[in-house]
Amino acid sequence: MTAGEKKEYWRWQETCWIDESKNWRDAKIITAGIDVGSVSSQAVICVDGELYGYNSMRTGNNSPDSARNAINGVLEKSGMKLEDVTYVIGTGYGRVNVPFAHKAITEIACHARGANYMGGNTVRTILDMGGQDCKAIHCDEKGKVTNFLMNDKCAAGTGRGMEVIADLMQIPIAELGPRSFDVDEEPEAVSSTCVVFAKSEALGLLKAGYSKNKVIAAYCQAMAERVVSLIERIGVENDFFITGGIAKNPGVVKRIEKLLGTKAVETKLDSQIAGALGAALFGYTLMQKQGASAKAA
């Protein structure tokens, strides 16, 4: 991202939302989850274990500021103050750098918990395609992790890999998915797994007369094959749920579904909030337990 770059093709939509039908002032327990990722940061606020509001934005220069900015968005929109939030859990890559968090939990556990809420308790396999990593998770009916792998070594199959192709094609990242279906015939996947080699391969395809859309299709297919090969290490059990930014790219999602022969559970909620939502729900469970033990004592 040099200063001379004219257009930022990788830039995606930031969102802030609250559930107007709920009144947080009536709530007994308000918890928050803050997911500071390498690329995006999310804050989720739950009232009595139900989703109330969220904010999703690009991660800034440092984790504490990103965490503050993320939660401030929801607080301002709802008129809440940070003091109104009983318990805060940090997760994601910058989880230990959330200054106002009471506890940190890994994003693996949080994504499983969040997916369990978003996709229902029948979700058993979760694929999280984040900005700089990719996770495959199995969980039980309570959203507890039973098997996981996380790949943050290699850019292939991550949002960063998608940004590289958006820049290369000079097409906004949100258009990549729809464009990948606008082709005369479905091309073979780009053969290189490595993003660096795939990039030169994509340039070669353009030179060979492929349309941009066809190159994007070849790249989306490669990305789908790549993440499917990751999930296959732990296997797929239904229901299947996708979280993270790439869940918004139908070009990759549809191809993954085709390769796996199963449909991903759909959700109206923003796929990027799963981690933060899981963290907020973990907080709620903790508070409930503490309340119960306080009563018992």
Partner: peptide, 12 residues
């Protein structure tokens, strides 16, 4: 960073 793509951001 082990990956070339991620290492680029590290170099930046």
């Amino acid at each position: 960073a082990q990956c070339t793509v991620f290492a680029e951001s590290e170099v930046v």
